[in-house]
């Protein structure tokens, strides 16, 4: 399997990448780790005329705390997220998601920015990004634009990125007080993608749930926040009955995917069960 011909340009800086993208427009695709784009090109599902590689732009690879947020550069690999001491301490949901993503070699090369920008309906990151109420920084010749994760995932393989924009950074708001987080998934046995993946970010005070972020991937053509699960938790004590009752709303109001591996009915059931499990784990970590 060989991709169709293209020109390859290794950008030396983000500014150069932006200007190359402005020149080549729709003919060009941005290459990050390549673990979504290259398989699609080998199948000739995508045939860009120009690839603009961000792989040599070292300043796009970082994990840091700044202005009360966690900031992750687009070219940070899944492995770097998985093994970050900072993230393990302040946002363990991200390493827990990373370690379940793909496999070791994919995590070594694939990037968080590339995966999020690709917006595969069965990718793991969108669930975590949504549960954490993250922001996505898109940059172009016009400067930076900050997009809420909730408006970023538009449709299958479609994001709110506009022509000429490059995903530069992911920002996670700093937690207030103690949080309990978890990511659980039903892993497709062949591909490793999420048949269902549920990310949970809970905050509680005095035994009552202060805030709840529940992001679900794999179930629907795009990852989503499970609003009815969240509203079933907020203000309530996080006991087994509440968690179970809230989890029953995991697939409310969404179109449910159906494929050879999992029918819509089965997926919906998995979403409910795995949401309950994710909530239970996250709640247990609050203590």
């Amino acid at each position: 399997m060989i991709p169709a011909s293209f020109d390859y340009i290794a950008a030396k800086s983000l500014d150069e990448a932006i200007s190359l993208l402005a020149t080549h427009k729709d003919d060009a695709k941005i290459l990050a780790g390549g673990h979504s784009l290259l398989p699609a090109m080998k199948l000739r599902l995508m045939q860009p005329k120009v690839l603009i590689d961000l792989g040599r732009i070292k300043e796009l690879s970082y994990i840091k705390e700044e202005a009360g947020q966690l900031r992750i550069g687009a070219m940070t690999t899944h492995f770097q997220v998985e093994t970050s001491d900072l993230l393990r301490r302040v946002c363990p949901l991200l390493p827990e998601t990373a370690t379940q993503l793909g496999d070791m070699q994919v995590r070594n090369k694939g990037t968080i920015g590339g995966s999020v920008a690709h917006s595969d309906p069965a990718a793991d990151w969108p669930a975590a990004i949504l549960a954490l109420d993250a922001e996505i920084v898109a940059t172009s010749a016009r400067g930076d634009r900050v997009i809420k994760a909730t408006s970023f995932f538009v449709e299958m393989l479609t994001t709110a990125l506009e022509p000429g924009e490059i995903l530069r950074e992911i920002r996670i708001p700093g937690g207030k007080g103690k949080s309990g987080q978890a990511y659980v998934k039903v892993r497709h046995p062949a591909s490793g993608f999420a048949v269902v993946g549920v990310a949970v970010n809970l905050a509680a005070d005095g035994g009552k749930c202060q805030s709840a972020g529940v992001g679900i991937t794999g179930v629907s053509p795009k990852a989503y926040r499970a609003a009815n699960v969240e509203s079933g938790l907020k203000g309530n004590a996080l006991d087994a009955k509440t968690l179970s009752a809230a989890a029953a709303h995991a697939a409310d109001g969404v179109d449910i995917n159906s494929d050879l591996y999992a029918s819509a009915e089965y997926r919906k059931q998995l979403a409910t069960v795995y949401t309950r499990r994710a909530l239970e784990i996250a709640a247990s970590r609050l203590k």
Binding site: Y8, L31, G34, M104, Q105, N108, K109
Partner: peptide, 15 residues
Amino acid sequence: VDGQAVKSCTMLAAQ
């Protein structure tokens, strides 16, 4: 590649 195990079918030689 540079000390990281990667799948060489999913990487361009140019990379």
